[in-house]
Design a protein around this nucleic acid. Sequence first.
DNA 1: GTGAAAGCGCTAACAC
DNA 2: GTGTTAGCGCTTTCAC
Lengths: 339, 339
Amino acid sequence: MNMEPINLKKLASLLHLSISTVSKALRDSHEISADTKKRVMDLARELNYEPNPYAGSLRKFKSKTIAVIVPDIINNFFIFAIKGIQEMAHARGYHVLIYITNENPEYEKDVVRHMTNGRVDGVVISLTSPIDDTEHLQALQEKGLPIVFFDRVAEAFGNSSIITTNNYESAYSGTRYLIEQGCKRIAHCQVSDKISIGIDRLQGYKKALEDSGIAVRPEWILTSRKDYMHDTALIEQTLLQKDAPDGLFTSVETHALIAYDICRKHQIDIPGQLKLLSFSNMPTAHLLKPSLSTITQPAFEIGQAAVQQLILALEKPARYVPEKINIDSILVKRESTAK
Amino acid sequence: MNMEPINLKKLASLLHLSISTVSKALRDSHEISADTKKRVMDLARELNYEPNPYAGSLRKFKSKTIAVIVPDIINNFFIFAIKGIQEMAHARGYHVLIYITNENPEYEKDVVRHMTNGRVDGVVISLTSPIDDTEHLQALQEKGLPIVFFDRVAEAFGNSSIITTNNYESAYSGTRYLIEQGCKRIAHCQVSDKISIGIDRLQGYKKALEDSGIAVRPEWILTSRKDYMHDTALIEQTLLQKDAPDGLFTSVETHALIAYDICRKHQIDIPGQLKLLSFSNMPTAHLLKPSLSTITQPAFEIGQAAVQQLILALEKPARYVPEKINIDSILVKRESTAK
DNA sequence: GTGAAAGCGCTAACAC
DNA sequence: GTGTTAGCGCTTTCAC
């Protein structure tokens, strides 16, 4: 069953050539005669020769492999981002190792720490750990491993590229839109108060309220603990209090779905009693009852851009200048925010 | 920036020990004194020593890496399956390379062919290529690389484990359920007529019709070309013909969503004029308008089981017997099939 | 234009 | 209990 492996040695002996000649021929070196090249290539193809990637990696300290580290994979944003990442990576000849941290900062650290061993050439990451806790990332930098952040980023990392959407502006205009639709009491559900997007979006929300002369009510800024039970209880309690919000702006689609469930359970009418707007890449947003108004991120493009930056850092380090790339989101108005 | 790498040689010279002693100490060999072990371990920890995985892989012909190859990642089934795969793999100390073939058989072949080079120890795959076209998989087997199939499988591969749900029975009982709900003219939309799940589910559908004395109408067996435009046109045309179906049973959630869009566009009432049932793992099924009745696969568990089988094959080849594992789906009745 | 040899970091068989 | 050595498959000088 287990055939003898085809390696350079084998090819060389079959062709009565030296290993180094075969190696050069396969990489189309100009040192080698056209005739020899052809003989080598033909036999290699015939025997389905595949170079051992680890031998090459060991020699060259390059693995042609990148890691993508994401907090979760249920959120459609990450699904499309991963799709963009892997398409771009494969197109450029890179392999993609996937790590899902399940919103667990300790696990994220663990994963990142083990990245320093040369398994990957670089890392594309959307953070789950607080922005002020980036020691583990520092270690990567010190090892010379390029990192590209997307979505949930660490701004402090001066020499890493950062790909995001216009979080502040989107949250601002989303909130303004809710106000235009008649909302006076808008709650905001943020994914975390220690993560870039949480902070940026909250700022946009606050500024929009201020600009409209509406006071910010701290008790209506809900902070997720990334725990379904907790988040459900938090949102439920907020929506059921007297003088409840008439608008809810959620930062991730999971919370919008929780809100739907709560509203059904307690017969809160959307958009009559509560208008709902969420950052979301859900393909079913338009089919929900009521259809969900969304701020939709260009997730696929963000993933692609992240890999492009990473590969630039890997392959043209001299020409690489870390960039902050923004790709705008789109506000899609649907029934959940209708007047 | 780029610190000198820490390797065994470095540790050895720092400790005035030989490389092999250090190597053994780190792997807690009984040959080494407790004292030396402690010295070695302490320094390794202090310097954040991380063994070079490729050096080890080169020596041991084991990469502790598996590949997961899936046709797409939009379908929620695959998302949950990937989650199960990666969780189980990481728990067992394996890394996961991800390949999305975008339903392109040629690309799948390409990917699979390049798996023979030792980059991965084994492969978990859900096929996009026709069941009778498995030459590329044969090559893997011959190289001694274990393969585990899940969902879209190649039954012919006698010595590979296969993890599926009870496709035939689920399709049978789903179709029976539509009949019980009053449907007399049920169309079936299959993902492919050359893929295991397509065939199994179609059989279940046909048998259910036969058992109820309803004639199978070939023109109501719709076969996807995995092309959005084509599939939309096909379904639309079927739903708009006179004497149109009063029930539609789709094999993947994408087609159910297409059906929703078509019904909205042409004001076909679900479930009044058309009852809709689909295999699906959509988290929003219960929130759609109308809510979607689904046959939901235990995707996460299927992914986990696949990796468990693969690791068994890798680590206990002597004890490994390829298995056909079935994990039942659940029929969830919702509004889209109401009487 | 071709080949010999060193070495990437690690493990394991074999000294001592 | 510790050290020496060969070698995994490949690339890359450097000879010839």
